[in-house]
Simulated scan of single mutants.
Amino acid sequence: MANSLQTPHSGYHWDGNGDRFFEGWYYRVTLTEWGQSFGFMYSIEDPIGGKPHSGGAAQILGAGDRYLWRTFPDVRSFWGARDYLGLGHTRRTNGKHSCQRLAPASFEREMQEGYQATARLNQGYIRDPGSQFYCRWHYEIQPIYGWGNPNLPQQATGGLMSYLPIFEPGWQILMAHGLATGWIDWNGDRYNFTNAPAYSEKNWGRSFPQKWFWINCNSFICHPDLALTAGGGRRKVLWWMESVGLICLHYQGKFYEFVPWNSQVSWRVQPWGRWEIQARNHQFEILLIGKCDRPGTLVRVPTEDGLSFRCRDTMNGRLLLELREINGRTLLRAESFLCGLEVGGAPWDEAWVF
């Protein structure tokens, strides 16, 4: 990624100690021509090795919300760049470790299984040994928006306090919007695409939120330049828990930020099926309504007990977005049927109102 769009926290965070630790990365590409999305989730836990949960994984939520995953137990074959976005985890055909980025052709030739990803590349291959269902992918990315005004230094999603070891976990949107060109082979169904909407984010730390929700969309009807990410969660702050949420969007070169330190954010999120989030600051107010009539798909997330099914996702949610000035004048009304919607953690016995 051009240095002007590289966000804070792009590099790998592990400091080499043996404390409980995880880091996870998420890449999404939306294929509007087919009405499908692919979400690629990469993670590493306790990378010092020798711990009960040491190892890595690659998960894919693909076409039709179908799920595929593969573990990579050997932490020695994982690599993460410290000062830029770059990571990979592989099994090599000759049995040797490859702890560095390879040219795409070399990766294709030498790697038995695995992935490598940067700000401009996402490439890999995994296969379920039981069902033999597989995915192979390779696409290049042109970043459009990082996180913040594109003409200013990029921002930390969690604000200035995110640089201190206070909040668990850390969260950073790496690229709010980009254009992806390449292909995905989803068990024989080949998707070739050019300038498809792309997105990436990450999280890291010693614990995952107790409970959370998430909304992401950069494929809106009639608004190709619009990118939205919203979320809320109960997270650990030193020795107590707090609930926080945000709504942020990039549109026509501007960054609209509704975060706890400048806005009032509230929500009503059902255990599944409906997400209502709104926020207000001294200039603007925004409303999001997400809906899903599908059952969603369970995916694994890091927990104290390792990767566990504590999260439900869909890539085919419906979203309505309204942005208004405080005086009531509508600035933007947008809709999508390819929205990412998620709830995770517990308890979800009833609607979460905040």
Rank of each mutant, 00 (worst) to 15 (best):
G233C: 09
W212I: 05
G233A: 14
L246W: 11
S219P: 00
Q172C: 09
L238H: 09
W183P: 00
R206Y: 04
F255I: 15
Q252A: 09
E168S: 04
A176R: 08
E242R: 06
K202S: 09
L228N: 02
Y191G: 04
M175Y: 00
E242L: 06
N218T: 10
Q210S: 06
H223R: 04
K202Y: 06
Y191S: 02
T229N: 10
A176Q: 15
S243V: 11
C222L: 07
L246C: 12
G178M: 11
A176T: 14
L226N: 01
P224K: 00
C248P: 00
I173N: 10
P169N: 09
A180D: 04
G205C: 15
W204A: 02
P209A: 13
P224W: 03
L226Y: 03
A227W: 05
R190S: 02
M241N: 10
D189Y: 09
E201D: 09
R235D: 07
G178R: 14
S200F: 04
W240A: 14
G245K: 11
E168N: 12
Y191E: 10
G205E: 13
H250T: 15
N203C: 15
N187E: 04
Q172F: 02
D189G: 07
Q252I: 01
F208H: 07
R235F: 10
D185S: 03
M241A: 15
K211L: 05
A198V: 06
Q252G: 01
D225M: 03
G245P: 03
Y251K: 10
L226K: 03
L238A: 11
E242W: 02
R235E: 07
R235W: 07
A227P: 15
G170T: 04
G205N: 04
S219I: 12
P169T: 05
I184N: 15
H223F: 01
W183L: 01
G231D: 15
C217L: 01
F208D: 01
D189R: 15
E242Y: 01
R234E: 13
G245E: 05
W171K: 08
N218Q: 11
K202L: 10
H250P: 02
Q172G: 12
R206D: 03
F208P: 00
G233L: 06
Q252N: 12
D225E: 11
V237M: 14
N203W: 07
F220T: 06
